[in-house]
Nucleic acid binder design. Structure first.
Lengths: 341, 341
DNA sequence: CTGTTAGCGCCTTCAG
DNA sequence: CTGAAGGCGCTAACAG
């Protein structure tokens, strides 16, 4: 059957394409009865404007791109919900692309995004990214960008983050005050902004409490999770004096929990574990995993709001629009009944 | 600065736009040295073709749409990974849209998808959807669709599912053989295909073992999770004789676990719980949650493969291409030391 | 091998 | 208030 487009509507109504177009946009310069006739036929034929044709003509895609490392991660999944909510309200589509924490893919994705696909970008940079030329090149294509969580210091724009330094400091302090003397720190990548801030919080908390920072207690995770499990196991076996672990990302926290159980190290009496995590199940583990939980949904919302405001007002994004939201520290107690003595 | 498009390249090289276009597509009918000149300038100027212009002209978007209820759900997150993997290999983009299990949103999303945005669709239908006219209308727009997990029986196309009936039967049988006499069943929606199959598996397992099916033990969950928690709590309080629970979806399994702990009902001695779940942490709960785990990643891969094959060969999708993958049943034992008597 | 021409579907001047 | 015409960037048919 013939496609239903403006031309078709125009023919059936004996109108010009221009008038139909205007009627559907509720333009002032078209009689209300014509509008009615047009709208009636449009709904009758189930007319759907061709988004790409419109984009091409108006040089506007009404789409925002979201570039993140992964989606099988509760933090990012929740952030997407927040982003999508805000975008939908403004009539924007959301185009999600996953870097899988791979630099080459990130570059390729950004390159694709420059082809008129999106009006703006929300991004959390991949852990392997060290060169930011691809991100900087977005400026030349006039694609505004807002970073969230994993930000890029070198690019001057708005960033939505959590108080990484403070919450890492508090988490570490929590372990110290609970009596830990040898606290390991697990992180993913050094060059990641969040890695730096969280590590600094860890270090400063140790120093503030008169503990020394032992570099051999700092473990850098890798991409593959089974390898991480092995690394953590090695560390805990090599250093049985470790009595506390602060994990910088969800996966490492979960893996640590697994390894501790496997090695028969009792949590939290023998070794205490706290990690960044948005996993609901963390609270149900027994003993429950103490966590630093980021307001993922709100982070997504705020980042999207900043971007959409800029797009709608066609104004540049200023670094001063950045926001820092607060994480919540859950110091969880075991629910297990005390063993009968 | 002026945009870098074919016209610009053509001007700088003193070539026609057509030749440049052909060169970039590595057409046979263009000299290799011209190709070189064109490619050199293209990379120098960082030329990026306008995807939507190309789509418009070729009537091909090189994009597949993925319509799912939510992304903050491990099953769907993993499925997306599988889809994305396959799509990327074939040079397709993935446009994800979330229905939030809301019928109206689903209709609106499908309608949008008909506007030339996508060449084909992968879909898991919303739990509230009872009328499938919007899905059927895709046929008129020549948009092929493959269902996965939550399929629509009324639409004749390929579907990728798991052996829902068998795994529900086995899960229930597992509870019976472990000694349960009053097994509750929690599900989300009656009209959902998976809900029906899983419920049938539950019923048949009961009957096969000479137990009767008590309708008052079947609980229909709702959208809001806190309400579900309340419903489950009510059920367990009202029916203290319940000694087993089979949850049809991840959320309900987790919520059941939470309620049992809250009510002080010991798992698995006092009450046994098994649920569909892809949550890694389910295995770390103590006692661990027995689960039916679907091969989410493979489901995504297979569904995408079927769709892409059809798109690439421009052939229709046949129901006979459907696939049924197998879930894994994890009957988890508590790792807790047996209480000293 | 290369150039010219004619659109894809839509929006937006400019003329009536 | 309505219509005619041009063009967004790209591709494909048709000439040379």
């Amino acid at each position: 059957m013939p496609p239903v487009n403006l031309k078709r509507l125009a023919q059936e109504l004996n109108l010009s394409i221009a008038s139909v177009s205007r009627a559907l946009q509720d333009s002032h310069e078209v009689s209300s009865q014509t509008k009615e006739r047009v709208r009636a036929l449009a709904t009758a034929l189930n007319y759907q404007p061709h988004a790409y044709a419109s984009s091409l003509r108006r040089n506007l895609s009404k789409t925002i791109g979201v570039v993140i490392p992964k989606v099988a991660n509760h933090f990012f999944a929740l952030a997407i919900n927040g982003i999508e909510e805000v975008a939908r309200q403004s009539g924007f589509q959301v185009l999600i692309s996953l870097t899988h924490d791979d630099y080459a893919r990130e570059v390729s994705i950004i390159q694709h995004m420059k082809g008129g696909r999106v009006d703006g970008l929300l991004m959390s940079v991949a852990s392997g990214t060290e060169d930011f030329a691809h991100i900087k090149s977005l400026r030349e294509s006039n694609i505004p960008i807002v970073f969230f969580d994993r930000v890029c210091a070198e690019v001057s724009t708005a960033k939505v983050t959590t108080n990484d330094y403070e919450s890492a400091f508090q988490a570490t302090e929590h372990l110290i005050q609970a009596g830990c003397r040898r606290i390991a720190h697990l992180l993913i990548s050094n060059n990641l902004s969040i890695g730096q801030f969280r590590q600094q919080g860890y270090r400063d908390a140790l120093l503030a409490h008169g503990c020394d920072v032992d570099p051999t207690l700092i473990l850098h995770g890798v991409m593959d999770n089974e390898q991480n499990v092995a690394l953590i196991r090695d560390l805990l076996l090599r250093r049985p004096d470790i009595d506390g672990v602060f994990a910088s990302v969800e996966r490492l926290a979960i893996s640590t929990y697994r390894v501790c159980k496997e090695l028969g190290r009792t949590i939290p009496d023998d070794i205490k574990v706290i990690g960044f995590s948005n996993l609901e199940a963390a609270s149900m583990l027994d003993p429950p995993l103490s966590t630093v939980t980021q307001p993922a949904y709100d982070i997504g919302r705020e980042a999207a709001k900043i971007l959409l405001r800029a797009l709608e007002k066609k104004k540049a994004i200023l670094p001063s629009q950045s926001q820092v939201l607060k994480s919540e520290l859950f110091q969880r107690q075991s629910t297990a009944a005390a063993p009968a003595r």
